[in-house]
């Protein structure tokens, strides 16, 4: 393998890893605050691509207006799912929440099939992003460079929000101890709702870029990326945002490199994530950055 080719694979891996990271953060933040695996997260990601499709194709709104609109709508959708599917179960056993999450996921998938049809639609990627540039001997889509840049900007914004703002502080406090946070005057429901909104916002950022990279959207497109990003969050240490990012990159780069170096295994591309999950659960169940904690009784 030539260096050029290797670099091309690496840049592909990094951009795929960026997308995984953006989605994995949503899983990890919700887990941190509710101890819930939000199985509907992959479907929220899918909905973002449909919002973009309708904005640009159906309503003919220019992309630079549509995309911000998609982010806001998707954040709203995430908050809506939380209000309808999870908030009424705040005092219920965790298993009920999990079942509700699976229900919410099926609901969004089937609603999309009923409303928009199951036939894949082409994602309207603006030419600006899909143009191909020549770097040395290899040709790479501009998008491959934009994705990590956008991801880094989003991550920096997220870090600022979580570490430097009062809402971020409230999120951290709620994730540590619901009851005490309430007694300190924090509105728990609003904080949880905001967390879902934020996670969905990032999933929409990932969704838009995913749509441009793999320009075909369909109602079940969120399932596999959703599972993989959940695995990324577990690999990094669920509940830990830095861990989700690391897990996302490991998965993205690993997947691309597997196919690049062992072309015979191309068909096992999706299995890679699951094998990695099994390995990490056997060797370090709390994930790379996860802390060892005993379950509170």
């Amino acid at each position: 393998m030539t260096l050029d080719l290797f670099l091309q694979h690496l840049s592909n891996g990094i951009s795929l890893g960026s997308l995984y990271a953006l989605i994995a953060i949503g899983y990890t933040m919700v887990y941190g605050i509710l101890r819930l695996i939000n199985f509907a997260h992959g479907d929220i990601f899918m909905m973002a691509t449909y919002f973009a499709f309708f904005g640009i194709v159906t309503f003919r709104i220019p992309w630079f207006i549509t995309f911000p609109l998609v982010l806001v709508l998707t954040a709203g959708l995430g908050m809506g799912v939380e209000t309808v599917a999870y908030r009424p179960l705040r005092e219920a056993p965790k298993i009920s929440l999990l079942i509700s999450a699976i229900g919410a996921s099926f609901f969004l998938e089937n609603l999309t099939i009923v409303l928009f049809g199951g036939v894949p639609k082409p994602f309207p990627a603006p030419k600006l992003f899909t143009d191909v540039v020549q770097v040395g001997a290899v040709s790479i889509q501009k998008l491959t460079f934009y994705i990590p840049i956008v991801t880094v900007i989003a991550l920096l914004g997220l870090m600022y929000l979580i570490n430097k703002t009062k809402t971020g502080m409230a999120m951290r406090a709620v994730s540590m101890d619901h009851e005490t946070a309430r007694v300190m005057g924090i509105n728990i429901n609003r904080t949880i709702s905001f967390t879902f909104g934020l996670g969905s916002f990032l999933a929409a950022v990932g969704g838009i870029m995913w749509g441009m990279k793999f320009p075909q959207i369909q109602p079940l497109m969120g399932v596999i990326p959703g599972l993989k990003c959940f695995i990324a969050a577990v690999i990094g240490g669920i509940g830990n945002i830095g861990g989700a990012v690391i897990g996302g990159f490991i998965l993205g780069i690993g997947e691309i490199m597997l196919v690049a170096f062992l072309p015979d295994l191309t068909g096992y591309r999706d299995a890679f994530a699951f094998v990695l999950l099994i390995l990490i659960l056997m060797s370090k169940p709390t994930g790379i950055l996860g802390e060892k904690t005993a379950e509170k009784v």
């Binding site: 409230a170 951290r172 946070a181």
Partner: peptide, 20 residues
């Protein structure tokens, strides 16, 4: 029941939260 993972300052800041 402090927020053990937050700094000393943040623990106090957070209680100010509601008066903003």
């Amino acid at each position: 029941r402090l927020f053990k993972g937050l700094s000393v300052m943040e623990n106090v800041l957070i209680a100010h939260h509601l008066h903003l």
